Simulated assay, not measured.
Amino acid sequence: MLLEVHVEKKFADFACRFDFSVSSKKCGVFGPSGNGKSTLMHMISGLLEPDKGLIKLNGTVLYDKEKGINLPPEARRVGVVFQHALLFPHMSVKKNLHYGLKRVTAAEHSINPDQLIRVLQLGGLLDRRVSKLSGGERQRVALGRTILACPHLILLDEPLTGLDHRLKYQIIPDLKRVFAEFSIPLLFISHSLQEMRMMTDEVLVLEDGKVSNHIATEDLARTRLGSGGRGYTNLVDLERPEDTGRLLRYWMGNIPLMLLKTEDAAPGQFALNSRDILLFKKHPEATSARNMLSCVVRKTYQTDWLSGVELDCQGHTLIAEIVPQSLEELDIRPGSKVVAVFKASAFERLW
């Protein structure tokens, strides 16, 4: 996928000027409200005409002011999934899904509807009215309808905003699964850095109607170490849960980790806050924490009031945040051997 955008748009009190190209299949558009994210999405999809410039997708000109080209939305092969799933309330789930098929010719059908329904886990919902669906189910139906139109690019405009914590992390695996299964490029638009990290590989950072940075998603997250009250979130994939009596033993690769027992003891992705990780130069003789990992320091990151420490834990990366005084007193530097210690209660299941 190659998306090229060189456009300008002026409003009464705001002006946008976007100048970038994207080749990644999983790119984010990140920034707080009021910086042009929705304006950019609407111009790419054809819902808003720029004042001037050029938009190309895979070599096809979608908009060219000088040449008088402005393809209508239905001709651009760009799908949009909005924050509020805009489904047809008078139709069943099945009819909503099949509406996407009607938007392309039979020769352009490249996605098997039955396969998509299986991947999105919609088989049990096909005869249900959309008014009877949960927020997460509605978003899965909206995504399925868009994908069945066989787009060359999908724009997801804040698709998780408005969903509660539980529903949000239920739908993220479905989103990841379907885009991996059908290899469809996406632009994921959000103001949530954590959502960006779970859905994208690189990010366009928008500020004041311009792209201020085009950066790898993880690099963006690490540039913000110490910039908020919550700290950096390590996203940890854990497998093979085992009941040890009072705790659960999970595995991060070949590393055993102890977690609190929960009702949903299953493999998944967990959050571990960087500020919940304590660093020791030697293995502590006694501690109430259940997890102690021998690690090697890869690098350190300096911030205004904290220091980030990137750890290599048998090939797995963890980031810890400590005060600069501790970094100096423990003489932590690249190549140092440390022990990372954290409690069984420090993990939060995401999905």
Rank of each mutant, 00 (worst) to 15 (best):
D174Y: 15
L272Q: 05
F11V: 01
Q83I: 06
A344C: 13
R290A: 14
F182L: 04
H90S: 03
L186V: 07
P151F: 14
E321C: 04
I44G: 08
F342Y: 10
F182G: 04
D13A: 13
A107Q: 12
L278G: 06
S110W: 06
M258E: 12
A221C: 02
G46S: 06
L330P: 07
G245H: 08
T303Q: 13
L293C: 04
L235T: 09
M199R: 02
R230E: 14
P73V: 02
S183P: 03
K337R: 14
V93E: 02
P72Y: 03
A286C: 08
S131D: 15
R240S: 13
R17G: 02
H214P: 00
S336K: 05
E310Q: 13
L350V: 04
V81T: 03
E329S: 10
R177E: 14
K299P: 07
L101C: 02
E8P: 00
T317F: 06
K56C: 09
M196Y: 01
G31V: 09
S288E: 10
N35P: 04
K299G: 09
K281Q: 12
R166V: 12
V22G: 04
A265F: 08
L220N: 03
L272A: 05
V178C: 04
F347C: 04
Q269W: 03
K67L: 05
L318C: 13
V104E: 01
K25Q: 10
D51M: 00
E8G: 01
L238P: 07
A340Q: 06
L248R: 09
L156K: 11
T287Q: 04
L116D: 00
D127S: 12
A180H: 15
L257N: 09
V78K: 01
V339Y: 15
M41W: 06
K102E: 13
T244D: 09
E158Y: 09
K168D: 04
K10F: 04
H42M: 13
P241R: 10
N234P: 11
R103C: 14
E202P: 00
I171C: 09
F270I: 08
P89H: 05
L126E: 08
H214G: 00
E8D: 08
S274K: 04
E263W: 06
V81P: 01
T244N: 11
L248N: 14
Q194T: 11
Q121S: 11
K343M: 07
E137V: 11
V29S: 12
N96P: 02
A142Y: 08
D331R: 09
R349M: 10
R145N: 10
R103A: 12
A340E: 11
S307I: 04
S45E: 06
S212F: 00
S183H: 15
D157P: 03
N96E: 04
S192G: 09
C295N: 01
P32A: 12
D201V: 02
D13E: 14
D219E: 15
Y169C: 00
Q269D: 02
D312F: 11
